[in-house]
Design a protein around this nucleic acid. Structure first.
Lengths: 126, 126
DNA sequence: ATACTTAATAGTAATTATTACTAAATAAGA
DNA sequence: TCTTATTTAGTAATAATTACTATTAAGTAT
């Protein structure tokens, strides 16, 4: 198991993902947290982010643009990434339950479904 | 534009992805091609793979396990990756057109949809 | 509240995946 | 065949992430 102690660093890292609210990468979280705690280690940021993604406290939105993006919104939803500016957006819409379609085949033991769309965002499509 | 010359290296790299038939990574392609051509450069493998993914000759199945996986199957389909052994499988099933649902919202100019499921494969779920 | 135990941290080195660079080789057209 | 610009090999550089280790500090027991 991971996360047996609730450190101040962990709390700051979790808060950063929520406050940034941009599907932040480890680097972005590090920059944000560094303002309040200039002595935090980058390794601590990476370790806590991946641990919280494992426990479900955060959601690993995948390596949408090279680096892994983390999301404080942990309920089922999907993402759109702009090929131009690399910004990540939540996608609204009524999607059927994909996981169930795969589960029915019985071939795999499915635990997660990660769907992402890409193209140009409202700003970049002009 | 990319790919203006049809080199022997490019052909070998394309064939490797098809012959391996395992959603190979650049490293796996390099190892496979190196047997026939011990002097091929790893940079050549990376460059050709990403170029062929750009032109549509190959499909970029995403960084499912750290490294980018390439697929010779370029028509719409989705993948399952085993969290245990990192093997990538094609997922069969009748999926509705996701891209269209997002397109209707009009918020983004959608060009691609990448969906992957994860969990345990038949071998690892015992 | 104090002491103890062990997990977590800071700081840095190492690793992995990938891209950048450059001189030499070569595919494709004139 | 000659020309020319693209591609290659080989290597250096970069980006993202993990590994390592001495030190610090949560959480529990005293």
């Amino acid at each position: 198991m991971s996360i047996k102690r609730n450190t101040l660093q962990k709390q700051m890292i979790f808060d950063a993902v929520r406050e940034l609210n941009i599907h932040a990468t480890a680097e972005q979280v590090y920059d944000y947290v560094s303002v309040k705690n200039p002595f935090i280690s980058k390794a601590t940021v990476y370790r806590n982010l991946s641990q919280m993604a494992e426990t479900g406290e955060l959601f690993n939105a995948g390596a949408l643009s090279g680096a892994t993006h983390y999301d404080h919104n942990t309920h089922d939803h999907y993402h759109f990434i702009c090929k131009e500016c690399n910004a990540v957006f939540d996608v609204d819409g009524d999607f059927p339950d994909m996981t169930n379609i795969v589960k029915k085949s019985g071939e795999f033991e499915v635990t997660d479904c990660n769907m992402s769309f890409s193209g140009l965002c409202h700003k970049c499509k002009v």
